[in-house]
């Protein structure tokens, strides 16, 4: 029974556990996220945020429990699911020895996009890099790389976008551009973002989740969140004054 894509839930995570021996990176994580929501995932280092994203993007298999993205199981329907999700990481995930255009064309081929040249042009314009299209990405600044990386993630028109600390290492101008790009696609996409930046994460999100030691400490829609209490909870998971 595959109700592929017709559910209103974007993410359906049930008792998700990821363990190797006694160490549990994820320990019984469960939550539901509606479509077109923006989920911010907070938590200290080693809380399991990256593991969660890797499981939800099919890069890692869960040890037990299930996760469905757009109604598709992360294990059984992995190939189909990859067609409908995108990842923007703090790593640009681009080949430094290819030009901007070649990078996008390469990934367009990987996603089997029809008439890739047109789509690539469109995206290069959208991220304001069409004047640098023939330059090797090796020569790009951090901000430009991140913009190109967004273009790469949007190539195949994914419905769910995963953001793994996309703001880290960006200068304020690049952050503004990134904000603008996210705002453009905000309304017809579901977002899952990992962030260390509490202000930024809360500003963007419609739902917030705090992970600690692989467990869900808190999962609430933005409206229900009392900021003071939320900050206190977050700080308690980080512990000992580290923020």
């Amino acid at each position: 029974m595959k109700e592929t894509g017709h559910t209103d839930t974007a993410l359906e995570v049930r008792d998700l556990t990821r363990a190797f021996g006694v160490r549990k990176a994820l320990d019984g994580v469960s939550f539901d996220l509606p479509r077109r929501a923006f989920l911010s995932v907070f938590g200290p280092n080693g809380a399991g945020k990256t593991t969660l994203i890797k499981v939800l993007t099919t890069l890692l298999n869960p040890t037990s429990g299930t996760a469905r993205v757009l109604g598709l199981d992360v294990v059984d329907d992995a190939v189909e699911m990859r067609q409908r999700i995108g990842l923007i990481s703090h790593n640009p995930l681009l080949y430094p020895d290819l030009t901007a255009e070649e990078n996008l064309l390469f990934f367009a081929e990987m996603y089997g996009i029809d008439r890739p040249a047109g789509r690539v042009n469109e995206l290069l314009e959208a991220v304001e890099l069409d004047h640098r299209r023939l330059d090797l990405t090796r020569t790009f600044s951090r901000g430009m790389l991140q913009r190109l990386s967004i273009a790469r993630a949007l190539l195949h028109r994914p419905e769910v976008l995963f953001l793994d600390e996309p703001y880290s290492g960006l200068d304020p101008h690049a952050m503004d551009i990134l904000d603008g790009l996210i705002a453009q696609v905000r309304n017809d996409h579901t977002f899952v973002m990992i962030s260390h930046d509490l202000d930024k994460g809360l500003e963007l999100c419609s739902h917030a989740l705090i992970l600690a030691r692989g467990k869900v400490v808190l999962f609430e829609p933005r409206e229900a969140i009392d900021e003071g209490a939320f900050r206190a909870t977050y700080r308690s998971t980080v512990g000992m004054g580290v923020s």
């Binding site: 993007t57 190939v79 990842l87 790593n91 995930l93 990934f107 990987m110 996603y111 089997g112």
Partner: peptide, 8 residues
Amino acid sequence: EALLLSPV
């Protein structure tokens, strides 16, 4: 990672 994320 990007390669593995694509439906290949």
